[in-house]
């Protein structure tokens, strides 16, 4: 650990790795709670994998891979959202198809792009140690945009996430806010690909938020805590991977996964204990007790 801190103080690449991790934590802390409570992790997965198609095409045609990723993610988000709201049928099949087609297109383009084969692994697993400074600025800008949108519209997002039907009856433009939410998730996915890569994006988007959800009763608190947990996980993953020279991305995710499983067990234990206390305590309605045990 001391070795890591000393390296952190002197090594520029470690500093930008940490900055990238923290910036990604803000994005996933803001959007992760929506993904978790709205149960759209599979949609986020579809978007994440369609991104590879956009990246591959951008590499092949000589554009910035980030621009290609962003474009593919937003298109995939709009397509999935439109199908869910209008067509209603076969939503999960479509997501699966986009998932597979996106990866296939990406792999084909990358295979035909000279010199990029070796970098494929970094798009799948990310390379937090090689994040260029301009990407840091880009991520900071996206974080700022997400924060502004969430601040301005958090009640509409909450209404749409909580109860779409009721929101529609209240005259809230549900389609607009649902699609906006998916596009924001898509942007976050692209942002996180820089850090932990395509395959592990979902974990960083969902795990910190799910851990926070075990303990708090509001979406806003969930965002704050998920951001802090995300930041701490990034720091811990970097520190743990530095000594034994492990890849940083998978280390971060394993720490996150371990924390999530422990937290799920602990919160389950606490809930059961509460139920027992309520059952043994006097004057508690039976109905309340049965709710806790579910």
């Amino acid at each position: 650990m001391r070795e890591f801190l000393a390296a952190l103080a002197s090594q520029g690449f470690l500093q930008s790795a940490l900055a990238a991790g923290l910036l990604a934590s803000i994005g996933c802390g803001l959007m992760g709670p929506y993904v978790v409570v709205k149960r759209i992790a599979f949609i986020a997965g579809g978007i994440a994998h369609s991104v590879l198609g956009g990246m591959g095409a951008a590499l092949y045609f000589g554009f910035s891979p980030l621009a290609g990723a962003l474009l593919a993610a937003v298109l995939a988000a709009l397509l999935i959202g439109w199908v869910r709201l209008r067509w209603r049928a076969e939503e999960d099949t479509l997501i699966g198809a986009l998932w597979a087609i996106g990866m296939a297109v990406g792999l084909l383009f990358i295979a035909k792009t000279p010199g990029y084969q070796t970098d494929l692994m970094s798009y799948l697993f990310g390379n937090i140690l090689l994040v260029p400074t301009e990407s840091l600025w880009f991520m900071a800008g996206l974080d700022g945009l997400l924060l502004l949108l969430v601040l301005a519209y958090h009640r509409q997002f909450l209404a749409v996430a909580f109860d779409e039907e009721f929101a529609r009856l209240r005259g809230i433009p549900v389609t607009f806010f649902y699609l906006l939410l998916l596009v924001m998730v898509a942007v976050t996915v692209v942002l996180l690909i820089q850090v932990v890569g395509l395959i592990l994006v979902l974990a960083l988007l969902t795990l910190p938020a799910a851990i926070a959800g075990h303990y708090v009763h509001s979406l806003g608190l969930m965002m704050l805590i998920a951001t802090l947990i995300g930041g701490a996980l990034n720091l811990a993953g970097l520190a743990l991977s530095y000594g034994p020279d492990l890849p940083a991305g998978p280390t971060i995710i394993l720490v996150a996964g371990g924390l999530y499983v422990s937290s799920a067990l602990v919160s389950r234990f606490l809930a059961r204990r509460r139920a027992q206390l309520a059952a043994s305590g006097s004057g508690t309605p039976v109905s309340q007790v049965s709710d806790h045990s579910h």
């Binding site: 709670p33 409570v37 149960r39 009640r155 509409q156 909450l158 209404a159 996430a161 909580f162 109860d163 779409e164 039907e165 009721f166 929101a167 009856l169 209240r170 005259g171 809230i172 959800g213 708090v216 009763h217 509001s218 979406l219 608190l221 969930m222």
Partner: peptide
Amino acid sequence: QLGYVPQYPSFPRDFPITVEQAVLLARVG
């Protein structure tokens, strides 16, 4: 202008929201 009470709650029961916040959502917009 309508107040609607559905047969089944059209939201997940484990949603992290308090009763007051859920009722306040009627005022959004």
